[in-house]
Design a protein around this nucleic acid. Structure first.
Length: 689
RNA sequence: GCCCUUGUAGCUCAGUCGGUAGAGCGCGUCCUUGGUAAGGACGAGGUCGGCGGUUCAAAUCCGCUCGAGGGCUCCA
């Protein structure tokens, strides 16, 4: 269930063996880095006590002047809500009220506002359907029409418990009540017959909720723990005005149009085939060009920075991953080990069960191979293949390394969450003293990549250790230096960043780059991680100037993260309108009639010779249809070839962005223009990241 | 993995109360040779995700299964 790669706690260990956990199972940094995983959503974070409710009944003291009330006294710092959050939170109460009117037996959990709306979790035998949502919406409108006042009620704990029980909402609300720290005030909010344990705040009357819509139903575990009961979560959104709601829904619709899964199919960039397997990407020719260009780009940057390219196999012995600490501790997120025929046969002869086989693999009594879940152990072996002197450092080994991880099927998502992916991975082996400069180099690389692609909408997270925890490996002094180095380096980036204590990997601090997809989900792309763990686990060393052995530090870094995820994000980022250097087809040649075909063919040879990717539209359609086709295919440039062009030997240019004709150019000029755009990796005109 | 939704031609979809399937786009052929987002005609494509069951008869009903989508969970 989880993809452990980044975690340090061997929490999977109990499943199978109790072998002493290697001091911090490895990690490779990759992980985080590497990989792709979705970052926690911010929603649902408002810790406060959620709402709840119950049947009608006279209520106790009502305090209407709650203004002076401090909502910040809760330990988890419940923040005062913004007006929009208040509106949405209020809408969630109205939702709950409506659900109770229709299904009095529903048990309520919580209903906070989220980044784009709100939700409320219900425990109810009846499964909500789309039609139910419409009914509930109608009932919500009734509640709103009644223009109920939202009133705050503060009670003692005893009263609160009594109130909850009277309303038959003890199932979840009592637990939520217990969450409220001793000493904090317990409050309820009431509107009409609905009363809910709630810290607030709310709008004053239900009529303030003018524009809302229920969007979907989804399963959600109580308190987000899959061991708990799964509740039904109804999602909705609300805005101050109808216009804003409509705009939002329209934007959602627009966003869906640039979904990389949709564009990937339309532009024939990649394919996922059931027969091949879930989460396994087939890069079609057009997509392969895209990836190839990206890799060429990054490889050239790496060369500038003194990296050396290596290649390593897709599988390696289990022992290697035992040393790194990945096996068996993270085996739940790996494909099962591969055991050779002979071993398998002899095991079969002795009647060994699958469980037994699994145990023996875990305990190291049988060897096997693992489809590699990360590249670092192999790069480490390359580093360790010869004696190293401090004069050799830093050693920077780079590889577009393909790794495989067993992601839960429900987590798979197009190209952004897959089971086989290629990291633009590299491991830097350096001395303590070199750490700062190397980290900075890594960040510069990430910045170069993001800038070149016009990606401005990302956030940078500096993961530091939690000062109160002892789970980290490595000397505190080293950590201090590494953290200082990261901080220092990130400042030179010139972008906003957030330091997040407790977000470090157990083996070292890190910096992650996170971007959002069209639906607003966050994905981690690039990362730079410092690792004090693996060098020790693998017993790495170099000879220092003092003629003594020293342990190098490893930096794991991947500016793209994975080619798959990055490409998926990039497709959405550009909405398929790639800059010329990335466009699978850079120029479409459009002969106005078949008479210009020979001219087009000659031109095609010229362009190809110049390294420009182009194709001729040979359909016998009218010219307008050819233009339309090229537009739909999102080709950056069209060369119009008619009688006039053949006579003058010049082509008429029409580019994707400036629809209109852009004048005539000699073939040489046109080639020069395109070559320039390709070489400079020019972003599309008018593109704003 | 769990919850909900979903699976009909390459794509987007329609298929009323069960009677062995349709459209548009795309593709092919022919006609058309036309200057900046769709010219016309004809045609080829589907054992309706798969397996079982009910029925005289199933794309339509039931069960199982595989895949997809949206969530949840995890991601040190």
């Amino acid at each position: 269930m989880q993809s452990p790669f980044l975690r340090c706690e061997p929490r999977v260990a109990h499943a199978v063996s109790r072998v002493p956990v290697p001091a911090r199972p490895g990690i490779d940094a990759q992980r985080s880095t590497d990989f792709p995983h979705r970052v926690r959503r911010l929603t649902g974070r408002l810790g406060a006590s959620p709402p709840c409710l119950a049947p009608v009944k006279p209520l106790a003291p009502i305090r209407q002047d709650w203004q002076g009330w401090s909502f910040l006294q809760r330990k988890d710092a419940m923040k005062a809500m913004t007006p929009l959050e208040e509106l949405r939170h209020s809408a969630s109460h109205v939702l709950a009220a409506a659900v109770l009117r229709l299904y009095p037996e529903a048990k309520l959990d919580i209903g906070p506002p989220t980044e784009n709306g709100f939700y409320y979790d219900f425990d109810l035998e009846h499964k909500f359907t789309q039609e139910d949502l419409e009914k509930i919406e109608a009932t919500m409108r009734e509640v709103i029409k009644e223009n109920q006042r939202f009133e705050r009620i503060e009670t003692s704990r005893e009263e609160a418990e009594k109130l909850i029980r009277e309303r038959g909402q003890e199932a979840y609300k009592l637990g939520r009540l217990e969450d409220i720290p001793e000493g904090d005030t317990v409050s309820f909010y009431r509107n009409g017959e609905f009363v809910d344990l709630c810290a607030g705040t709310h709008v004053n009357y239900t009529k303030k909720i003018k524009a809302f819509k229920l969007l979907s139903v989804a399963g959600a575990y109580h308190r987000g723990d899959e061991k708990n009961k799964q509740l039904q979560r109804i999602y909705g959104t609300a805005f101050p005005t109808k216009q804003e709601l409509e705009d939002y829904l329209e934007r959602l619709e627009e966003a869906r149009k640039r979904d990389h899964r949709k564009l990937g199919r339309e532009l024939k960039l990649f394919h996922i085939d059931e027969a091949v397997g879930q989460g396994l990407i087939l890069w079609t020719p057009a997509g392969a060009i895209l990836r190839q260009e990206l890799q060429t780009f990054i490889a050239s940057e790496l060369r500038k920075q003194g990296y050396e390219q290596v290649f390593t196999p897709h599988i390696g012995k289990l022992g290697l991953y035992r040393t790194s600490g990945h096996f068996p501790y993270y085996k739940e997120s790996q494909f099962s080990p591969i055991v050779d025929h002979e071993a398998l046969e002899s095991l079969a002869h002795e009647g060994c069960s699958c469980a037994e086989l699994s145990n023996r693999l875990d305990e190291g009594k049988i060897d096997g191979y693992l489809l590699k879940p990360m590249n670092c152990p192999m790069h480490i072996k390359i580093f360790d293949s010869q004696p190293r002197s401090y004069r050799d450092l830093p050693v920077r080994l780079a590889e577009f390394g393909t790794v495989y991880r067993w992601e839960q099927s429900g987590e798979l998502n197009g190209m952004t969450r897959v089971r086989g992916f290629t990291q633009d991975d590299a491991h830097l082996f350096c001395t303590e003293d070199q750490l700062g400069a190397e980290i900075q180099g890594c960040l510069e690389l990430v910045k170069t990549v993001f800038t070149t692609l016009g990606m401005k909408d990302y956030r940078v997270r500096v993961g530091l250790r939690d000062p109160d925890s002892s789970k980290y490996t490595g000397e505190p002094a080293l950590w201090d230096r590494a953290e200082a180095a990261l901080r220092e380096a990130v400042k030179t980036l010139g972008v906003d960043y957030a330091e997040e204590p407790g977000e470090a990997a157990f083996y070292g601090p890190k910096i992650d780059f996170v971007v959002k997809d069209v639906i607003g989900r966050e994905w981690q792309l690039g990362t730079v991680q410092v690792d004090y763990n693996l060098p020790r686990r693998f017993g790495l060393s170099y000879v220092g100037a003092d003629n003594k052995d020293h342990v190098p530090v490893i930096i794991h870094r991947a500016p793209f993260g994975s080619m798959e995820r990055f490409t998926g994000v990039l497709i959405e980022h550009f909405a398929g309108n790639f800059p010329v250097w990335l466009a699978p087809e850079q120029v479409r040649l459009l002969p106005i009639t078949d008479d210009q075909l020979p001219f087009a063919e000659e031109l095609e040879r010229t362009l190809k010779a110049a390294g420009i990717r182009c194709a001729i539209d040979r359909h016998s359609d009218k010219f307008g249809a050819k233009v339309r086709r090229a537009e739909l295919d999102k080709i950056p440039h069209m060369f119009v070839l008619g009688k006039k062009e053949v006579e003058t030997g010049k082509i008429t240019l029409r580019s994707r962005v400036n629809k209109a004709a852009e004048g005539q150019h000699s073939v040489d000029e046109a080639v020069a223009l395109l070559t320039e755009q390709i070489r400079n990796r020019t972003l599309p005109d008018g593109f704003s990241g």
